[in-house]
């Protein structure tokens, strides 16, 4: 080797060298990889949780013995009023319905709804099924009594809804996204601050710093560290943001994708 291959470094080159080493060591560090993986899984898990919570809300399975189309309609209408999807399963006799409730196939079973004394079979009393069926049976009885009295019912007028602040939802959404973003950013900042401190301590305790300081000034060493770890942190943040946004769009969690991306970009920047 000849000395012609050796050129003195500029400070910028030294800083870049240090930064490069920081990134390449950290990126192969098991702890870092596992940490990033956990963070990503956590975000995806949150999305999935959101989807699970939002999708469908509640559903109630009701068994009916001796039902009819009118009974099913009444139950489902009552379900809509209580914000739950009602599906009706027909049973042939009370014994079958009893089994269905015991096995958990249905939440509750309604026996002889049109009789004078309808009976509801439940695992234990209380819960939405009870309220729901009570309302439906009452409604049916009232309709029946009105019909018996010869009252002709007209269908009620449809309500027209005017939203004064249609963006309210989107605003909340943006606020939540911003909040999550800030929390993630904050923890990453703390984490990378710690990485820098850790790296300095490591070099100091392993005495490697004596060799390093023979070739560069302390500020170059520190600048390289901060720069390298900062870039790495930013890259990690971007990966998380991209995965979070892509996941949110894919799972259809948000209503206004454009605003979500805008908010995320603002938080990262």
């Amino acid at each position: 080797m000849s000395t012609s291959e050796i050129r003195p470094h500029t400070p910028a080159q030294l800083v870049r060298l240090v930064a490069g080493r920081e990134i390449s060591t950290r990126i192969r560090d098991k702890g870092f990889l596992i940490g990033s993986g956990v963070l990503i899984v956590l975000i995806l898990g949150m999305l999935v949780f959101q989807v699970a919570v939002n999708s469908g809300g509640d559903s109630t399975e009701l068994g009916v013995v001796g039902g009819s189309a009118a009974v099913t309609d009444a139950l489902q209408a009552q379900g809509r009023a209580l914000d739950t999807d009602v599906s009706v399963v027909d049973y042939d006799d009370e014994a079958a319905a009893r089994r269905g409730v015991e096995d958990g196939d249905v939440d509750a079973a309604l026996v002889s709804p049109s009789a004078a004394q309808p009976e509801l079979l439940v695992e234990k009393s209380g819960g939405t099924a009870e309220t729901l069926v009570q309302g439906a049976v009452q409604g049916m009885a009232v309709t029946q009594q009105l019909a018996d009295a010869g009252v002709q019912l007209q269908s009620p007028p449809q309500l027209a809804v005017v939203a004064l602040d249609p963006d309210a939802d989107a605003d909340t959404e943006a606020a939540v996204v911003a909040l999550v973003g800030v929390v993630v950013l904050y923890s990453l900042l703390i984490l990378f601050g710690q990485f820098v401190a850790q790296g300095v301590v490591e070099e100091k305790s392993s005495r490697v710093v004596e060799l390093l300081l023979a070739t560069m000034r302390p500020w170059q060493l520190l600048a390289g560290k901060v720069l390298g770890l900062g870039l790495l942190g930013l890259a990690q943040m971007l990966v998380i943001a991209v995965i979070g946004v892509a996941g949110a769009l894919a799972f259809d969690v948000v209503e206004l994708p454009g605003r979500l991306i805008g908010t995320v970009v603002t938080v990262v920047a």
């Binding site: 060591t25 490591e202 070099e203 392993s206 005495r207 490697v208 710093v209 004596e210 060799l211």
Partner: peptide, 8 residues
Amino acid sequence: PEERGLYP
């Protein structure tokens, strides 16, 4: 250096 220094 007298105190050995390397990245472990």
